[in-house]
C-alpha cells in the first residue's frame, strides 16, 4: 500500500514543476520541450551532485519557467536539468563566464538575474542614482533657503531644553 502510493506519486511527477498561470504553463511546457531537446545529450547520465561553484553560477541565472526564483533555488524539472548542465560544463573545464554566455545565447539576457550594464540597461542602473541626486538637490535647496531666511531666534540652550525634556518625561509628580 505504501509502496503503491509512492509509485503513484512518482508517476505523476511530470517535467516542468511548479507553473502558475495557464500562459506560463504553456510557455513552460514549450521551453521544457526545447530544453529537453537541447540538454538531453548532456544530461543523459544519472544526476550528479553539484559543486559549490555550480550552485553559485546557478544562483546568477533565472529559472525560465518559474519567474522570481533562481536556477539554484527552483524545484522545477527544468532548473534541475540546467543545474546538471552547469555542472557538466564545469567538469568539462568551461569558465563560469562561458557557461553564463551559453545560457544567455539560448534564453536571451532575461536569464541573467543581474541585468548587464550595457546599452539602454544603463538607464536601469543610473535611474536610482539620478533620482537620489535630484532628491538630494531639492533637499539641499530647501535647507539653504531656510537657512538664508532664518530670523535671529530666541535660541534656548540645548542643555536646558534637554533638562526640561527630562522633567516632562518624568510625568505625574
Amino acid at each position: 500500500m505504501r509502496h503503491e502510493g509512492r509509485s503513484n506519486a512518482l508517476r505523476r511527477w511530470v517535467p516542468g514543476g511548479v507553473r502558475l498561470t495557464t500562459g506560463a504553463r504553456a510557455l513552460g511546457l514549450l521551453l521544457t520541450v526545447i530544453l529537453l531537446a537541447l540538454a538531453l545529450p548532456l544530461a543523459a547520465a544519472a544526476e550528479e551532485p553539484l559543486s559549490p561553484e555550480a550552485l553559485e553560477i546557478a544562483n546568477e541565472l533565472n529559472c525560465p519557467v518559474c519567474q522570481g526564483q533562481s536556477v539554484r533555488d527552483s524545484n522545477s524539472q527544468l532548473a534541475r536539468q540546467m543545474r546538471q548542465v552547469i555542472q557538466q560544463k564545469l567538469d568539462a573545464g568551461e569558465s563560469p563566464d562561458a557557461i553564463k554566455a551559453y545560457f544567455v545565447q539560448r534564453y536571451g539576457i532575461e536569464i541573467l538575474r543581474e541585468p548587464p550594464r550595457e546599452g539602454f540597461i544603463w538607464a536601469l542602473w543610473w535611474g536610482p542614482v539620478i533620482g537620489l541626486a535630484l532628491g538630494g538637490g531639492v533637499l539641499f535647496a530647501y535647507l539653504r533657503r531656510g537657512a538664508s531666511r532664518q530670523p535671529p531666534s530666541e535660541e534656548s540652550d540645548s542643555e536646558v531644553l534637554q533638562r526640561v525634556e527630562e522633567r516632562l518625561l518624568s510625568g505625574a509628580e
Partner: peptide, 24 residues
C-alpha cells in the same frame, strides 16, 4: 523610487526595446 524603477523597468524594456529583462 529605486524599488519601483526596478519593478517596472522590464515593462519599459519590453515595450520600447523589445528586450525581456529580469531585474533580480
Amino acid at each position: 523610487f529605486a524599488t519601483f524603477w526596478g519593478t517596472v523597468f522590464p515593462l519599459f524594456s519590453e515595450l520600447f526595446w523589445s528586450t525581456k529583462l529580469t531585474v533580480g
